[in-house]
Design a protein around this nucleic acid. Structure first.
Lengths: 207, 207
DNA sequence: CTATGTGAATTTATTCACAGCA
DNA sequence: TGCTGTGAATAAATTCACATAG
Protein backbone atom coordinates (compact mmCIF):
# COMPACT_ATOMS: atom_id res chain seq x y z
CA UNK A 1 0.00 0.00 0.00
CA UNK A 2 2.96 2.28 -0.53
CA UNK A 3 1.16 4.72 -2.77
CA UNK A 4 -1.77 5.58 -0.57
CA UNK A 5 -2.15 8.86 1.22
CA UNK A 6 -1.19 8.42 4.87
CA UNK A 7 -4.33 8.48 7.06
CA UNK A 8 -4.63 11.33 9.55
CA UNK A 9 -4.84 8.93 12.43
CA UNK A 10 -1.55 7.41 11.37
CA UNK A 11 0.03 10.86 11.18
CA UNK A 12 -1.19 11.49 14.71
CA UNK A 13 0.64 8.36 15.87
CA UNK A 14 3.89 9.00 14.01
CA UNK A 15 5.34 11.36 16.66
CA UNK A 16 4.53 8.73 19.27
CA UNK A 17 6.47 6.11 17.34
CA UNK A 18 9.28 8.55 16.72
CA UNK A 19 9.75 9.23 20.42
CA UNK A 20 9.74 5.51 21.17
CA UNK A 21 12.20 4.74 18.39
CA UNK A 22 14.59 7.46 19.49
CA UNK A 23 14.40 6.06 23.00
CA UNK A 24 15.42 2.62 21.72
CA UNK A 25 18.04 4.06 19.43
CA UNK A 26 19.72 5.85 22.33
CA UNK A 27 19.94 2.50 24.09
CA UNK A 28 22.02 1.25 21.17
CA UNK A 29 19.42 -1.03 19.60
CA UNK A 30 19.38 -1.46 15.82
CA UNK A 31 16.14 -3.36 15.28
CA UNK A 32 12.80 -3.64 16.98
CA UNK A 33 9.75 -5.80 16.39
CA UNK A 34 6.27 -4.36 16.12
CA UNK A 35 5.47 -6.30 19.27
CA UNK A 36 8.20 -4.67 21.37
CA UNK A 37 7.47 -1.19 20.07
CA UNK A 38 3.82 -1.79 20.83
CA UNK A 39 4.55 -2.37 24.50
CA UNK A 40 6.44 0.93 24.75
CA UNK A 41 3.95 3.16 23.01
CA UNK A 42 0.67 1.47 23.93
CA UNK A 43 -0.51 0.75 20.38
CA UNK A 44 -1.39 -2.69 18.97
CA UNK A 45 1.32 -4.49 16.96
CA UNK A 46 -0.93 -4.89 13.91
CA UNK A 47 -1.79 -1.22 14.04
CA UNK A 48 1.92 -0.39 14.00
CA UNK A 49 2.58 -2.71 11.06
CA UNK A 50 -0.33 -1.27 9.13
CA UNK A 51 0.83 2.28 9.84
CA UNK A 52 4.38 1.57 8.68
CA UNK A 53 3.11 -0.20 5.60
CA UNK A 54 1.65 3.07 4.33
CA UNK A 55 5.07 4.48 3.64
CA UNK A 56 7.51 1.75 2.97
CA UNK A 57 9.50 -1.25 3.63
CA UNK A 58 11.52 -1.05 6.80
CA UNK A 59 11.01 -4.43 8.32
CA UNK A 60 12.77 -7.72 7.93
CA UNK A 61 10.57 -10.74 8.64
CA UNK A 62 11.93 -12.64 11.61
CA UNK A 63 14.07 -9.69 12.71
CA UNK A 64 12.01 -6.53 12.99
CA UNK A 65 12.27 -2.95 11.81
CA UNK A 66 15.45 -1.01 11.17
CA UNK A 67 15.25 1.69 13.84
CA UNK A 68 17.58 4.14 12.16
CA UNK A 69 15.85 3.96 8.78
CA UNK A 70 12.45 4.35 10.41
CA UNK A 71 13.52 7.42 12.41
CA UNK A 72 14.83 9.03 9.25
CA UNK A 73 11.72 8.25 7.24
CA UNK A 74 9.22 9.36 9.89
CA UNK A 75 11.16 12.59 10.38
CA UNK A 76 11.06 13.16 6.64
CA UNK A 77 7.33 12.54 6.40
CA UNK A 78 6.58 14.88 9.32
CA UNK A 79 8.96 17.42 7.77
CA UNK A 80 10.98 17.49 10.95
CA UNK A 81 14.31 16.83 9.24
CA UNK A 82 16.27 20.02 8.92
CA UNK A 83 14.89 21.33 12.19
CA UNK A 84 12.52 24.13 13.05
CA UNK A 85 12.94 27.39 14.90
CA UNK A 86 9.99 28.61 16.95
CA UNK A 87 9.11 31.90 18.62
CA UNK A 88 7.38 32.00 21.98
CA UNK A 89 5.13 34.87 23.02
CA UNK A 90 4.28 35.23 26.69
CA UNK A 91 6.95 34.34 29.23
CA UNK A 92 4.72 33.77 32.23
CA UNK A 93 4.57 30.51 34.14
CA UNK A 94 3.64 28.47 31.11
CA UNK A 95 6.06 30.23 28.79
CA UNK A 96 8.93 29.68 31.20
CA UNK A 97 7.94 26.02 31.48
CA UNK A 98 8.09 25.68 27.70
CA UNK A 99 11.53 27.27 27.57
CA UNK A 100 12.70 24.81 30.19
CA UNK A 101 11.01 21.79 28.61
CA UNK A 102 13.49 19.29 27.23
CA UNK A 103 11.10 17.34 25.04
CA UNK A 104 11.32 19.44 21.89
CA UNK A 105 14.79 18.44 20.76
CA UNK A 106 13.80 14.90 19.84
CA UNK A 107 11.60 16.38 17.14
CA UNK A 108 14.15 18.93 15.97
CA UNK A 109 12.55 21.98 17.49
CA UNK A 110 14.30 24.92 19.09
CA UNK A 111 12.69 27.92 20.75
CA UNK A 112 14.87 30.58 19.16
CA UNK A 113 13.07 33.71 20.34
CA UNK A 114 10.83 34.82 23.20
CA UNK A 115 8.64 37.89 23.56
CA UNK A 116 6.68 39.60 26.33
CA UNK A 117 5.05 42.96 26.93
CA UNK A 118 6.12 43.34 30.57
CA UNK A 119 8.87 45.99 30.77
CA UNK A 120 10.71 44.32 33.62
CA UNK A 121 11.04 41.03 31.73
CA UNK A 122 12.44 42.50 28.54
CA UNK A 123 16.18 41.99 28.27
CA UNK A 124 16.24 39.17 30.80
CA UNK A 125 17.40 35.71 29.85
CA UNK A 126 15.33 32.61 30.54
CA UNK A 127 17.00 29.29 29.78
CA UNK A 128 19.41 30.96 27.42
CA UNK A 129 16.83 32.89 25.44
CA UNK A 130 16.65 36.67 25.71
CA UNK A 131 13.17 38.10 26.17
CA UNK A 132 12.37 40.74 23.59
CA UNK A 133 9.71 43.42 23.41
CA UNK A 134 6.56 42.00 21.83
CA UNK A 135 6.65 44.88 19.36
CA UNK A 136 9.52 43.08 17.69
CA UNK A 137 7.38 40.11 16.63
CA UNK A 138 7.24 41.73 13.21
CA UNK A 139 10.93 40.97 12.72
CA UNK A 140 10.41 37.20 12.80
CA UNK A 141 10.05 36.93 9.05
CA UNK A 142 13.61 38.12 8.42
CA UNK A 143 14.98 35.84 11.11
CA UNK A 144 14.00 32.55 9.54
CA UNK A 145 11.57 31.59 12.27
CA UNK A 146 8.51 29.85 10.91
CA UNK A 147 6.64 28.59 13.96
CA UNK A 148 4.87 30.54 16.67
CA UNK A 149 3.85 29.49 20.18
CA UNK A 150 1.17 31.45 22.01
CA UNK A 151 1.32 31.36 25.81
CA UNK A 152 -0.49 34.59 26.69
CA UNK A 153 -3.84 35.20 28.45
CA UNK A 154 -6.83 34.27 26.30
CA UNK A 155 -7.85 37.85 25.58
CA UNK A 156 -4.51 38.54 23.92
CA UNK A 157 -4.27 35.33 21.92
CA UNK A 158 -6.11 36.37 18.75
CA UNK A 159 -4.06 39.57 18.51
CA UNK A 160 -0.76 37.72 18.80
CA UNK A 161 -1.91 35.25 16.17
CA UNK A 162 -2.53 38.12 13.77
CA UNK A 163 0.90 39.56 14.45
CA UNK A 164 2.38 36.14 13.76
CA UNK A 165 0.54 35.93 10.46
CA UNK A 166 1.74 39.39 9.42
CA UNK A 167 5.30 38.36 10.25
CA UNK A 168 5.00 35.37 7.92
CA UNK A 169 4.55 32.60 10.49
CA UNK A 170 2.92 29.51 8.92
CA UNK A 171 2.25 27.33 11.93
CA UNK A 172 0.94 28.24 15.37
CA UNK A 173 0.77 26.23 18.57
CA UNK A 174 -1.82 27.88 20.79
CA UNK A 175 -2.05 27.25 24.52
CA UNK A 176 -4.87 29.71 25.16
CA UNK A 177 -8.24 28.05 25.69
CA UNK A 178 -9.88 29.90 22.82
CA UNK A 179 -10.45 29.29 19.14
CA UNK A 180 -8.20 31.34 16.89
CA UNK A 181 -9.13 32.61 13.44
CA UNK A 182 -6.38 32.81 10.85
CA UNK A 183 -6.15 32.65 7.05
CA UNK A 184 -6.21 29.16 5.56
CA UNK A 185 -2.55 29.35 4.65
CA UNK A 186 -1.70 29.14 8.35
CA UNK A 187 -2.14 25.99 10.42
CA UNK A 188 -3.14 26.35 14.07
CA UNK A 189 -3.09 23.60 16.68
CA UNK A 190 -4.71 24.50 19.98
CA UNK A 191 -3.80 22.66 23.16
CA UNK A 192 -6.19 23.14 26.04
CA UNK A 193 -4.81 21.13 28.91
CA UNK A 194 -8.04 21.37 30.87
CA UNK A 195 -9.89 19.60 28.08
CA UNK A 196 -7.95 16.42 28.49
CA UNK A 197 -8.43 16.60 32.22
CA UNK A 198 -12.15 17.02 31.59
CA UNK A 199 -12.34 13.58 29.96
CA UNK A 200 -10.63 11.85 32.85
CA UNK A 201 -13.65 11.41 35.17
CA UNK A 202 -15.68 9.90 32.32
CA UNK A 203 -13.12 7.18 31.78
CA UNK A 204 -12.34 6.61 35.42
CA UNK A 205 -13.74 3.33 36.67
CA UNK A 206 -16.45 3.98 39.24
CA UNK A 207 -15.30 3.55 42.79
CA UNK B 1 -30.78 7.38 19.03
CA UNK B 2 -31.00 8.14 22.70
CA UNK B 3 -30.13 4.63 23.82
CA UNK B 4 -26.82 4.17 22.02
CA UNK B 5 -23.49 4.25 23.73
CA UNK B 6 -21.86 7.64 23.17
CA UNK B 7 -18.97 7.28 20.68
CA UNK B 8 -15.49 8.05 21.97
CA UNK B 9 -15.02 10.75 19.41
CA UNK B 10 -18.15 12.45 20.66
CA UNK B 11 -16.86 12.24 24.23
CA UNK B 12 -13.66 13.88 23.06
CA UNK B 13 -15.68 16.80 21.68
CA UNK B 14 -17.96 17.24 24.68
CA UNK B 15 -15.49 19.35 26.69
CA UNK B 16 -15.05 21.53 23.63
CA UNK B 17 -18.79 22.12 23.43
CA UNK B 18 -18.96 22.66 27.16
CA UNK B 19 -16.39 25.43 27.08
CA UNK B 20 -18.18 27.11 24.18
CA UNK B 21 -21.56 26.82 25.86
CA UNK B 22 -20.28 28.28 29.13
CA UNK B 23 -18.79 31.14 27.14
CA UNK B 24 -22.19 31.88 25.59
CA UNK B 25 -23.98 31.38 28.87
CA UNK B 26 -21.78 33.99 30.56
CA UNK B 27 -22.80 36.41 27.83
CA UNK B 28 -26.39 35.93 28.98
CA UNK B 29 -27.63 33.91 26.01
CA UNK B 30 -30.29 31.26 26.59
CA UNK B 31 -30.33 29.45 23.26
CA UNK B 32 -27.89 28.70 20.50
CA UNK B 33 -28.20 27.04 17.11
CA UNK B 34 -25.90 24.26 15.98
CA UNK B 35 -24.72 26.65 13.29
CA UNK B 36 -23.62 29.37 15.73
CA UNK B 37 -21.98 26.93 18.11
CA UNK B 38 -20.19 25.41 15.13
CA UNK B 39 -18.53 28.70 14.31
CA UNK B 40 -17.21 29.07 17.86
CA UNK B 41 -15.80 25.58 18.30
CA UNK B 42 -14.74 24.74 14.74
CA UNK B 43 -16.93 21.64 14.31
CA UNK B 44 -19.56 21.13 11.58
CA UNK B 45 -23.19 21.86 12.50
CA UNK B 46 -24.37 18.38 11.49
CA UNK B 47 -21.63 16.86 13.59
CA UNK B 48 -22.86 18.84 16.58
CA UNK B 49 -26.47 17.80 16.03
CA UNK B 50 -25.46 14.18 15.66
CA UNK B 51 -23.37 14.34 18.82
CA UNK B 52 -26.17 15.88 20.86
CA UNK B 53 -28.67 13.40 19.49
CA UNK B 54 -26.79 10.59 21.24
CA UNK B 55 -27.93 11.76 24.62
CA UNK B 56 -31.14 13.64 24.38
CA UNK B 57 -33.49 16.22 23.30
CA UNK B 58 -32.27 19.72 23.98
CA UNK B 59 -33.14 21.54 20.83
CA UNK B 60 -36.21 23.34 19.69
CA UNK B 61 -36.60 23.40 15.90
CA UNK B 62 -36.54 26.99 14.70
CA UNK B 63 -34.95 28.20 17.94
CA UNK B 64 -31.88 26.18 18.82
CA UNK B 65 -30.54 24.41 21.87
CA UNK B 66 -31.22 25.30 25.49
CA UNK B 67 -27.76 26.31 26.69
CA UNK B 68 -28.40 25.77 30.37
CA UNK B 69 -29.87 22.30 29.95
CA UNK B 70 -27.03 21.29 27.66
CA UNK B 71 -24.36 22.47 30.09
CA UNK B 72 -26.00 20.49 32.87
CA UNK B 73 -26.34 17.35 30.78
CA UNK B 74 -22.82 17.40 29.34
CA UNK B 75 -21.42 17.97 32.84
CA UNK B 76 -23.41 15.02 34.08
CA UNK B 77 -22.24 12.74 31.28
CA UNK B 78 -18.62 13.68 31.80
CA UNK B 79 -19.13 13.23 35.55
CA UNK B 80 -17.97 16.77 36.15
CA UNK B 81 -20.99 17.78 38.22
CA UNK B 82 -20.12 17.76 41.86
CA UNK B 83 -16.59 18.89 41.15
CA UNK B 84 -13.22 17.22 41.47
CA UNK B 85 -10.23 17.81 43.64
CA UNK B 86 -6.82 17.11 42.15
CA UNK B 87 -3.33 16.78 43.58
CA UNK B 88 -0.31 18.14 41.74
CA UNK B 89 3.13 16.63 42.13
CA UNK B 90 6.10 18.68 40.97
CA UNK B 91 5.96 22.43 41.44
CA UNK B 92 8.56 23.43 38.89
CA UNK B 93 7.85 25.73 35.97
CA UNK B 94 5.07 23.58 34.59
CA UNK B 95 3.56 22.83 37.98
CA UNK B 96 3.45 26.51 38.86
CA UNK B 97 1.84 27.22 35.50
CA UNK B 98 -0.86 24.66 36.23
CA UNK B 99 -1.53 26.20 39.65
CA UNK B 100 -1.91 29.58 37.99
CA UNK B 101 -3.99 28.30 35.07
CA UNK B 102 -7.54 29.59 35.20
CA UNK B 103 -9.06 27.14 32.73
CA UNK B 104 -9.89 24.34 35.16
CA UNK B 105 -12.82 25.96 36.95
CA UNK B 106 -15.12 25.75 33.95
CA UNK B 107 -14.95 21.99 34.26
CA UNK B 108 -15.30 21.93 38.01
CA UNK B 109 -11.70 21.11 38.86
CA UNK B 110 -9.69 22.45 41.74
CA UNK B 111 -6.04 21.75 42.50
CA UNK B 112 -6.41 21.12 46.20
CA UNK B 113 -2.92 19.92 47.05
CA UNK B 114 0.61 20.29 45.73
CA UNK B 115 3.74 18.26 46.45
CA UNK B 116 7.45 18.55 45.77
CA UNK B 117 10.65 16.95 47.02
CA UNK B 118 12.74 20.14 47.12
CA UNK B 119 13.26 21.17 50.77
CA UNK B 120 13.21 24.89 50.05
CA UNK B 121 9.82 24.70 48.34
CA UNK B 122 8.03 22.80 51.07
CA UNK B 123 5.84 25.06 53.17
CA UNK B 124 5.71 27.80 50.55
CA UNK B 125 2.43 28.87 49.02
CA UNK B 126 1.92 29.07 45.26
CA UNK B 127 -1.37 30.55 44.12
CA UNK B 128 -2.96 29.79 47.44
CA UNK B 129 -1.86 26.18 47.65
CA UNK B 130 0.72 25.12 50.20
CA UNK B 131 3.47 22.88 48.91
CA UNK B 132 3.81 19.70 50.94
CA UNK B 133 6.55 17.12 51.21
CA UNK B 134 6.10 14.46 48.50
CA UNK B 135 6.26 11.86 51.25
CA UNK B 136 2.76 12.93 52.19
CA UNK B 137 1.22 11.77 48.91
CA UNK B 138 0.09 8.69 50.81
CA UNK B 139 -2.38 10.84 52.77
CA UNK B 140 -4.42 11.72 49.66
CA UNK B 141 -6.82 8.85 50.13
CA UNK B 142 -8.11 10.22 53.42
CA UNK B 143 -8.43 13.71 52.02
CA UNK B 144 -11.02 12.98 49.36
CA UNK B 145 -8.74 13.77 46.45
CA UNK B 146 -9.27 11.43 43.52
CA UNK B 147 -7.23 12.90 40.68
CA UNK B 148 -3.48 13.19 40.33
CA UNK B 149 -1.41 15.44 38.08
CA UNK B 150 2.19 14.52 37.33
CA UNK B 151 4.51 17.39 36.46
CA UNK B 152 7.87 15.95 37.44
CA UNK B 153 10.91 15.00 35.31
CA UNK B 154 10.31 11.90 33.22
CA UNK B 155 12.52 9.64 35.31
CA UNK B 156 10.36 10.26 38.38
CA UNK B 157 6.98 9.93 36.66
CA UNK B 158 6.44 6.18 37.00
CA UNK B 159 7.32 6.27 40.70
CA UNK B 160 4.87 9.08 41.42
CA UNK B 161 2.18 7.22 39.50
CA UNK B 162 2.68 4.21 41.75
CA UNK B 163 2.44 6.37 44.85
CA UNK B 164 -0.79 7.81 43.48
CA UNK B 165 -2.20 4.35 42.93
CA UNK B 166 -1.28 3.28 46.45
CA UNK B 167 -3.01 6.36 47.80
CA UNK B 168 -6.20 5.41 46.00
CA UNK B 169 -6.05 7.86 43.10
CA UNK B 170 -8.21 6.66 40.18
CA UNK B 171 -7.31 9.11 37.44
CA UNK B 172 -3.93 10.52 36.43
CA UNK B 173 -3.04 13.36 34.09
CA UNK B 174 0.57 12.88 33.09
CA UNK B 175 2.69 15.65 31.60
CA UNK B 176 5.90 13.62 31.42
CA UNK B 177 6.74 12.45 27.91
CA UNK B 178 6.80 8.81 28.90
CA UNK B 179 4.33 5.95 28.95
CA UNK B 180 3.12 5.07 32.44
CA UNK B 181 2.09 1.60 33.57
CA UNK B 182 -0.69 1.32 36.10
CA UNK B 183 -3.35 -1.23 37.04
CA UNK B 184 -6.42 -1.30 34.82
CA UNK B 185 -8.57 0.25 37.53
CA UNK B 186 -6.69 3.53 37.06
CA UNK B 187 -7.09 5.72 33.99
CA UNK B 188 -4.08 7.65 32.73
CA UNK B 189 -4.11 10.41 30.15
CA UNK B 190 -0.70 11.56 28.98
CA UNK B 191 -0.21 14.98 27.46
CA UNK B 192 3.01 15.46 25.57
CA UNK B 193 3.00 19.00 24.32
CA UNK B 194 5.88 18.36 21.94
CA UNK B 195 3.84 15.74 20.13
CA UNK B 196 1.27 18.19 18.96
CA UNK B 197 4.00 20.55 17.90
CA UNK B 198 5.56 17.67 15.96
CA UNK B 199 2.49 17.42 13.71
CA UNK B 200 2.49 21.09 12.87
CA UNK B 201 5.08 21.08 10.05
CA UNK B 202 3.25 18.21 8.32
CA UNK B 203 0.06 20.22 8.14
CA UNK B 204 1.71 23.53 7.33
CA UNK B 205 1.12 24.58 3.75
CA UNK B 206 4.40 24.59 1.86
CA UNK B 207 5.90 28.04 1.48
C1' DC C 1 -39.72 29.23 7.19
C1' DT C 2 -36.00 27.92 10.38
C1' DA C 3 -33.43 24.62 12.72
C1' DT C 4 -33.55 20.02 15.01
C1' DG C 5 -33.06 14.97 14.92
C1' DT C 6 -31.92 10.85 12.66
C1' DG C 7 -31.97 6.93 9.34
C1' DA C 8 -29.14 5.85 5.35
C1' DA C 9 -24.99 6.39 2.55
C1' DT C 10 -20.38 7.16 2.53
C1' DT C 11 -15.92 7.51 4.13
C1' DT C 12 -12.35 6.37 7.24
C1' DA C 13 -10.01 3.49 10.57
C1' DT C 14 -9.25 -0.84 13.01
C1' DT C 15 -8.77 -5.61 13.33
C1' DC C 16 -8.07 -10.02 11.54
C1' DA C 17 -5.86 -13.75 9.22
C1' DC C 18 -2.55 -15.48 6.64
C1' DA C 19 0.76 -15.64 2.61
C1' DG C 20 5.54 -15.11 2.13
C1' DC C 21 10.23 -13.83 3.30
C1' DA C 22 14.65 -14.35 6.21
C1' DT D 1 10.03 -20.68 13.10
C1' DG D 2 9.35 -15.58 13.82
C1' DC D 3 7.83 -11.52 12.19
C1' DT D 4 6.56 -8.50 8.36
C1' DG D 5 3.26 -6.74 5.03
C1' DT D 6 -1.26 -6.42 3.29
C1' DG D 7 -5.75 -7.73 1.23
C1' DA D 8 -10.26 -8.61 3.16
C1' DA D 9 -13.60 -8.17 6.89
C1' DT D 10 -15.30 -5.55 10.42
C1' DA D 11 -16.23 -1.60 13.05
C1' DA D 12 -16.65 3.24 13.76
C1' DA D 13 -17.23 7.93 12.51
C1' DT D 14 -18.66 11.43 9.32
C1' DT D 15 -21.60 13.40 6.06
C1' DC D 16 -25.82 13.80 3.72
C1' DA D 17 -30.64 14.52 2.95
C1' DC D 18 -34.89 15.13 4.49
C1' DA D 19 -38.96 14.30 7.49
C1' DT D 20 -40.69 16.74 11.29
C1' DA D 21 -41.55 20.09 14.98
C1' DG D 22 -42.19 24.94 16.54
Amino acid sequence: MRYHKIPDETVRRLPVYLRGLVFYSEKGLKNISSHDLAKLVAVNPWQIRKDFSYFGDFGTPGVGYDIHKLIKEISRILKLDGGHRAALVGVGNLGAALLAYGGFEVFGFEIAAAFDIAEHKIGQRVHGVEIEDAARIATLGERGIGLGIIAVPRTAAQGIAEEFVSAGIRGILNFSPVHIDVPKKVKVITIDIAMDLARLPYYMPAG
